[in-house]
Design a binder for these strands. Structure first.
Length: 127
DNA sequence: AGCCTGACTTTGT
DNA sequence: GACAAAGCCAGGC
């Protein structure tokens, strides 16, 4: 694991808190995931400074369809590279199809070459 | 205000 | 190494 942020209740100071708090913060990060890469709920949580609440990231994804700008939620998987959120898409196969269109191969609901495809916001975006 | 629920993760058995 | 348990905390009711 890369940079471990100092965990406090506070979010990073140098980030612009979006107008609508936690959800929007999550969306901002997710939108920056490059095509063909994936990241994890936990990594996003760490980046936002709420390292202990990865579940909230998933919760935010659940509401991401209401975001004004499109959120590539299919690029977010769990720490094992598993497509745990696939059942929350329109169809169970949609998430896999979207990823496959970006040259990310899924076998048995697991992202292949996950380590190479992994995109860590704490590293790529920095702080 | 209080209880329940997670698209998670870590830790202990 | 598989399985269970428990933190986490914003929303919904």
């Amino acid at each position: 694991m890369p940079v471990k942020l100092k965990t406090t209740n506070n979010r990073l100071q140098n980030r612009q808190p979006s107008s609508h708090g936690f959800f929007a913060d999550v969306y901002d990060v997710v939108r920056q995931i490059p095509r063909g890469r994936v990241t994890t709920y936990g990594a996003i949580a760490v980046f936002l400074g709420t390292a202990l609440s990865a579940r909230m990231v998933g919760w935010a994804m659940n509401a991401s369809h209401e975001a004004f700008t499109e959120v590539p939620a299919h690029r977010v998987v769990n720490r094992n590279g598993m497509l745990t959120g696939k059942h929350h898409f329109k169809t169970p196969s949609l998430m896999e199809e979207l990823l496959l269109a970006e040259d990310i191969v899924i076998i048995e609901e697991i992202v292949q070459n996950f380590k190479e495809k992994f995109w860590d916001p704490s590293v790529e975006i920095g702080m």
